[in-house]
């Protein structure tokens, strides 16, 4: 149902490394699950509206008033790597 190439594509989108020894078992597990959930593909749902949110919320907006920001040292405290008060990361390629 989901083959290695598809699995690798999806893993790429999810930025999830899959090592060679994980590929076949993962593809098999996902296929089992997908086969089960695929039952919904057979339902006639053409006249049914999708539900993205449950319940009615009318007052969901926020006033444009300033709240206190975090001190920089608090913001950076959990970071794996920091430099010059910023979060240090390997540069994206092609930049």
């Amino acid at each position: 149902m989901i083959d290695r190439d598809e699995l690798l594509h999806v893993a790429r989108l999810a930025r999830l490394a899959l090592h060679e020894d994980e590929l076949d078992s993962t593809a098999a597990e996902l296929s089992t699950i997908l086969e089960h959930v695929a039952a919904i593909k057979e339902l006639d749902l053409d006249d049914v509206e999708p539900t993205a949110h449950i319940g009615d919320v009318s007052d969901s907006l926020r006033d444009d008033s300033v709240a206190t920001s975090l001190p920089v040292e608090v913001a950076l405290a959990p970071a794996p790597a920091v430099r010059d008060d910023g979060f240090l990361v390997p540069s994206p390629q092609g930049e």
Partner: peptide, 21 residues
Amino acid sequence: KLNHAGASGRIEGADSSIVDF
């Protein structure tokens, strides 16, 4: 904002950037 930081001591040999949110 992503600021280019050049080669970094922390990330060995790799070109690095600093994120300012």
